[in-house]
């Protein structure tokens, strides 16, 4: 299925806000409420931060693709990068703790969407974030 919105950014944190604006716009188009929109945007942002930090290890010049599409009654955002293999889904989901500084981003990703899955596709990492549309919007 073709992406309805397809954005490519460099792996520079300066573009995180732009990516959030794009996905928030998609959420509005698909009639997500404020809470659901914020959750999807948060999952996307944490996924991109993980790509920059872990897959690209801080290199700010590498490509990241953000593809947004509607699949039935599910809004899907796919984040792709060509960095080191990094599977946030494989990490055990530990509840955040005051004293543990790591892991909050992965917890936020997995708590904010209905489904997320990771695949290594050749040189690409692909993380798909899926969130079901609100009932009133899905019926249209």
């Amino acid at each position: 299925m073709a992406a309805e919105v397809d954005v490519r950014i460099a792996s520079d944190p300066r573009w995180l806000r732009l990516a959030r604006i794009v996905v928030e716009g998609c959420c509005r188009e698909f009639e997500f409420g404020d809470t659901e929109s914020r959750a999807m945007v948060s999952a996307l942002d944490e996924a991109l931060s993980n790509v920059i930090r872990h897959a690209y290890r801080g290199d700010t010049t590498r490509p990241i693709r953000i593809a947004c599409r509607l699949d039935g009654d599910v809004f899907e955002v796919e984040v792709s990068d060509q960095g080191h293999e990094f599977d946030p889904v494989a990490h055990p989901l530990q509840p955040p703790d005051e004293l543990r500084s790591g892991g909050r981003g992965i917890f936020l990703i997995r708590s904010s969407v209905d489904e997320c899955d990771y695949a290594r596709d050749g040189e690409w990492n692909r993380l798909r974030l899926r969130k079901r549309l609100p009932r009133h919007a899905a019926k249209r």
Binding site: S42, E46, S49, S101, R104, G105, L108
Partner: peptide, 16 residues
């Protein structure tokens, strides 16, 4: 309007 996990970590570190 928006804070991510690294911002939360900064607040927690400040609190500690």
């Amino acid at each position: 309007e928006y804070i991510d996990s690294s911002g939360v970590a900064s607040l927690v570190e400040g609190l500690q």
